[in-house]
Amino acid sequence: MSIQKKSNWELLKNGMFGENTIFRMAISLCPSIAVTNGLKNGVALGISVMFVQTMVNITISAMRKFIHPKIRIPIFMLVIAGYVTIIDMLMATYARTIYREIGLYIQIIVAFASIFARAEVFASKNKIVPSLFDGLGMGIGFLLAMIVISFFRELLGKGELFGYSLISGNPLLIMILPAGGFLAVGLLMGFFNWVDMKFYGGKGASGV
């Protein structure tokens, strides 16, 4: 695979932009709407995912010589679930208010296709350091997406950022509701596609 020849910086960049989980690959979409009604929640989930993604990549990469290919899927699952449990318990203990709102979605990180996919496609075939950068890149990419989406939603929907009031008047309440979440992601995705097509000659997202 050509990916192996990439430098660490390229790996990082690839995860952040080229293969951005949400806007380019369009996987792990659920949290992009569920927890992006405020920057605080979005960042919290983004960091959690980044942590799990990176740790899983490192662990799988370290174990890759010992895992029999036939049982690799349950092993991957176990590793992911283990880290998710750790972050779940950490959040439950130290970040109670946020946990109350997004606890379910933290637990559901376990079913994220992106984490599983990187373990399968990259970490299980590469050394530890590249795996770390790959996981970190994917994680940061995810975090960035979370930040962009929740920035717009919180600003438009509440006139606030991180809970601090910025705009007075009547905000577009819908933006922090489910419908507004879908709309925001759809419009942002379309916008990024437009930028990509207009300035980088891309063909737009492949779609699922």
Binding site: N170, P171, L172, L173, I174, M175, L177, A179
Partner: peptide, 10 residues
């Protein structure tokens, strides 16, 4: 509908 959800009071 968008307006009603966004500006329920107004």
């Amino acid at each position: 509908a968008f307006l009603l959800i966004s500006f329920p009071r107004l």
